[in-house]
Design a protein around this nucleic acid. Structure first.
Length: 277
DNA sequence: AAATTCTCCTGAAGGC
DNA sequence: TGCCTTCAGGAGAATT
């Protein structure tokens, strides 16, 4: 399940291949993604030179030279993008192919694979921040706009749990179910705690932990980039470093207490009943 | 307005 | 072994 670090890793893996390349051809094999893929809109991008591959929230964005159009991709929860030789055989759930001509290298194909089809691939014409899907999003978690004062201001009037709050994209983007549990454990805060009972001081700690867990996951992702172009390469879901997520009944690394699992915010949630209050 | 529930989908895991 | 059921999950839409 790609969270922000995974999307960042995908974008960083795509950038050296795509930036400076020309998008030659778009092929759509299955247009039934989260939203129907508009083939003609994507094909309108053919022939354009790619200037930048970047990320906003969990969206991967591709911008083009001399065009306002932007290619917007979301990996949903099972999506992946890989750069492959053009002769590489198509695999099950390869829904979209972007054939690119890499300067002084030759052709490559970027394949979007998504078994569960919760992802999307859109060509947009308006400025990115004005697009319907991005317009009401909160700040990036790793930016300076996401700080203790900001989080506390958004927490103090809310009755929802602190876990729900940090997973709300209108408050802050990119904190998914896994890293919500992880950062709350690092901060010593119970996920089920009401947001309006979290003090400024604890917001300070939580913000720091969110930034740390996401940053180190991105760093860990960098080490998996070598696998990025391999046909059997993993996209890099960094589960090996998780302290509480998926560890119900196993001992807390801090105190040895068995990790508790509970449904909070309609999602499986993990915490240590001793370390987190 | 805010909070909660529903929805899309496939593959993995568990039960018998 | 194999078929069935259950569950997971990002996030917008629908509902309360």
């Amino acid at each position: 399940m790609p969270e922000l670090p995974e999307v960042e890793t995908v974008c960083r893996g795509l950038a050296p291949w795509m930036e400076g390349s020309t998008l030659q051809q778009v092929r759509v094999h299955n247009s039934a993604l989260r939203w129907p893929v508009q083939v003609d809109e994507l094909q309108a991008l053919e022939g354009l030179k790619i200037v930048q591959v970047w990320r906003r929230a969990k969206y991967c964005l591709v911008s083009f030279e001399g065009s306002q159009q932007v290619l917007m991709l979301h990996l949903g929860m099972s999506g992946n993008m890989r750069v492959l030789p053009v002769e590489e055989a198509l695999q099950k759930h390869d829904h979209i192919e972007l054939e690119i001509n890499v300067a002084s290298f030759g052709k490559r194909v970027v394949r979007f694979n998504d078994p569960r089809r919760f992802g999307c691939c859109l060509a947009i014409t308006e400025p990115v921040e004005q697009h319907k899907l991005l317009a009401s999003l909160g700040p990036e978690p790793l930016g300076s706009a996401f700080n203790a004062a900001y989080l506390h201001a958004h927490a103090r009037n809310r009755k929802i749990t602190i876990k729900s709050l940090i997973m709300d994209g209108k408050v802050v983007v990119g904190v998914g179910n896994i890293y919500a549990s992880e950062s709350l454990h690092m901060a010593g805060i119970r996920p089920g705690c009401a947001a309006n009972r979290v003090s400024l001081a604890r917001c300070e700690i939580l913000v720091a932990k969110i930034k740390r867990v996401l940053s180190s996951a991105i760093e860990a992702g960098g080490t998996t980039l070598n696998d990025f172009t391999q046909s059997d390469g993993k996209p890099g879901y960094f589960r090996h470093e998780l302290r509480v997520y998926g560890r119900a009944g196993e001992p807390c690394y801090e105190c040895g207490t068995l990790i508790t699992a509970r449904i909070i915010a309609q999602r499986n949630t993990f915490y240590c009943a001793v370390c987190q209050t």
